[in-house]
């Protein structure tokens, strides 16, 4: 079968491979190369070595500010989204009327696009801040918490669905046995429920982690970095560097490579953690 199938390479694999090469592979390799050059269009690139990478940190503070903002935002969102999602999942796996309806409602914001989400919350947050005579662009603090609220609204329902699946997989005799042995609710939660949903916790942590770290559309629509560039996260800062002014394309590409390396490190960590757990089990 292998031999016959191999002759069908042009039909089965080639179309996807061609599109993949044009849309991803060549741009990726070219992107790594261009980060070591100075250019405004792709054809006028001149080799400059690591100079772009040095300028990322020395030309201005934008990248480091964006990195710090992104890290703080990511930590706060990962913790809050997972906490709320897990609590909701606990509530919705008890035998109550209308759990399906609630699940439908909580999950819905996840389907909306980042641009739409950003403008919905801009209206809401500005509406509340109005009572203090300010708006979301007044201080980076407002933009930060605005993004956290938006992220929670968007992601909690999604993570909740994964936690519900994890909770429903716990065999019922485990909690029955715990009840017979006289375990309290708290003991049941910490000794049985949480250890049993550990795989879901890992998945959800990394999903919220990468989604928060790579956030762009929501950031652009909600604050666009205002005030100044104080609330610009990494992805938005890279976009500003590329398209904000001419002459910074090389630095923008170097920032993009650094951004990629950070995301890859997170993904590598996830892979390592899941692999290690599979060996233990």
């Amino acid at each position: 079968m292998q031999k016959t199938l191999r002759r069908y390479f042009p039909l089965f694999l080639l179309p996807t491979l061609l599109a993949f090469t044009v849309a991803f592979l060549i741009p990726f390799i070219l992107g790594v190369y261009l980060s070591f050059t100075e250019f405004t269009t792709v054809t006028d690139a001149a080799w400059v070595g690591f100079s772009n990478y040095i300028k990322v940190f020395t030309a201005n503070q934008d990248f480091l500010n964006a990195l710090w903002f992104t890290i703080r935002f990511t930590v706060v969102s990962v913790v809050s989204v997972n906490l709320f999602a897990f609590l909701l999942a606990l509530l919705l796996t008890r035998k109550i009327h209308g759990t399906n309806l609630f699940r439908t409602i909580f999950f819905m914001p996840n389907l909306l696009g980042g641009i739409v989400l950003g403008y919905i919350w801009q209206l809401m947050i500005n509406g509340v801040l109005m009572y203090w005579g300010v708006d979301i662009t007044f201080s980076a603090k407002y933009g930060f918490w605005g993004l956290v609220i938006l992220m929670n609204w968007q992601m909690v329902g999604y993570m909740m669905v994964i936690y519900i699946a994890g909770l429903q997989n716990i065999p019922e005799d485990l909690s029955e046995a715990a009840a017979i042995d006289g375990a309290s609710r708290w003991q049941e939660l910490t000794r049985i429920t949480i250890p049993m949903v550990m795989p879901s916790i890992t998945i959800c942590t990394f999903l919220t982690l990468t989604n928060s770290f790579k956030l762009f559309d929501q950031n652009l629509a909600l604050t666009a970095g205002a005030p100044g560039r104080e609330t610009a996260m990494l992805a938005l800062d890279i976009y500003h560097t590329f398209y904000g002014r001419v002459g910074y394309e090389g630095i923008g590409q170097a920032k993009a490579v650094l951004f990629f390396l950070m995301v890859a490190a997170v993904a590598g960590l996830q892979l390592w953690l899941t692999r290690r757990k599979e060996v233990d089990a």
Partner: peptide, 25 residues
């Protein structure tokens, strides 16, 4: 090798290729 290239592309953020990809397109 092709399979692992596909898997690899999943972890690359869009900003990494946005400029070169739009130029090639």
């Amino acid at each position: 090798a092709i399979y692992y290239l596909f898997v690899f592309s999943m972890i690359v953020p869009f900003q990494m290729v946005m400029f070169t990809m739009s130029k090639i397109a």
